[in-house]
């Protein structure tokens, strides 16, 4: 964990942090609604619905890593699955969106479940 002195030596740009976090959370919220629609169409119930959400959220994050993070991050000498070039903590990148999008997911899941099963 970097201390305050580390930040004085290598300062962080708050605008970039905000920009990256916003890009990721926008994507997570949008995809969570889409996953809800898909789960409703499939008619998933209880645990399988949540499992579906987690699997697809992790898939989205991995896709995001592969398309947006990896090309520049690997070139500049970061290790595989290391997001420290663009995000402050690893946890924020890999798990931050899982709980942010859950509410939207359940909303559209129940909506489409009710719509499809007339």
């Amino acid at each position: 964990m970097p201390t305050e002195r580390d930040f004085q030596i290598s300062p962080i740009v708050p605008e970039s942090v905000m920009h990256n976090t916003k890009a990721l959370s926008n994507l997570q919220n949008l995809t969570a609604s889409i996953f809800g629609a898909a789960a409703g169409i499939l008619g998933l119930e209880s645990y399988s619905g949540f499992l579906f959400y987690f699997v697809f959220t992790v898939l989205t994050t991995v896709l995001f890593y592969a398309i947006r993070v990896a090309p520049t991050s690997l070139k500049s000498g970061h290790g595989l699955l290391d997001t420290s070039r663009f995000f402050r903590t690893q946890y924020e990148f890999w798990f931050g969106g899982v709980f942010g999008g859950l509410a939207g997911y359940i909303l559209t899941w129940t909506l489409f479940y009710g719509l499809v099963r007339a």
Partner: peptide, 18 residues
């Protein structure tokens, strides 16, 4: 849809000042 949305995101910026 997932693929399309991910490829439509804006480019990330490095957070370290240097």
């Amino acid at each position: 849809i997932c693929l399309g949305l991910v490829s439509g995101t804006s480019r990330l910026r490095p957070i370290q000042w240097r």
